[in-house]
């Protein structure tokens, strides 16, 4: 259990720092593009690079957002229930999150394979093939799903855990 949690969290930290790096790079790159256009000529394919950056930024941010509990939810009703009942709702919520995101990840594996082997699409100017970008999307949703799975398993474990065991862990 602890091993699973630490693998997922390490992977999430990894995607998070990729996203942060890409975000900062986009800021510099867009500024560089503007200055370059004013002083010299426009950069060919600047838009495609920003688009590519956006995919990485969004997808690598999904799992971190889940980990930080920042996906917006409405707690108005559930918050009023006893903690035990809330845990059951939480299991249900995280089950849905896991199923949905892993389904999307699974679908996008198909998309990526199709773009890799059959319909070999690529961007208009820089000829960046779509399929590696598709795999980034797969990564994003699968990682989100893994964070969901982690949050799904933890309350289940905690329900069956006796107080003594949890004291030992501390």
């Amino acid at each position: 259990m602890n091993l699973f949690a630490s693998i997922i969290n390490t992977a999430t930290r990894f995607t998070r720092y990729i996203a942060l790096l890409v975000m900062a790079s986009m800021m510099f790159f867009i500024t560089f593009g503007v200055v370059n256009r004013w002083l010299f000529t426009p950069i060919i394919g600047d838009i495609e690079l920003v688009q590519l950056g956006m995919v990485v930024l969004i997808m690598c941010g999904l799992a971190y957002t889940e980990q930080a509990g920042s996906h917006i939810a409405i707690g108005l009703i559930v918050d009023r229930f006893p903690v035990k009942v809330q845990k059951i709702f939480e299991i249900f919520t995280n089950l849905l999150t896991t199923v949905v995101t892993l389904t999307i990840g699974f679908i996008y594996i198909g998309v990526a394979l199709n773009h890799q082997n059959h319909m070999q699409l690529s961007t208009g100017l820089l000829n960046i093939p779509y399929y590696p970008i598709d795999y980034i999307i797969v990564l994003g949703f699968v990682m989100w799903g893994m964070q969901g799975l982690l949050k799904l398993v933890l309350p289940i474990v905690s329900i069956f855990q006796t107080d003594q065991e949890s004291r030992k862990e501390v």
Binding site: I44, G45, I47, T123, G124, L125
Partner: peptide, 26 residues
Amino acid sequence: KGLKMRVNGKSEIAFVQGLGGVPVSL
């Protein structure tokens, strides 16, 4: 010369470059 010209797909890129423009895909 040097203008950002919209290209509608790959086949226009060579033409735009031949004209001296900078292809931008939109």
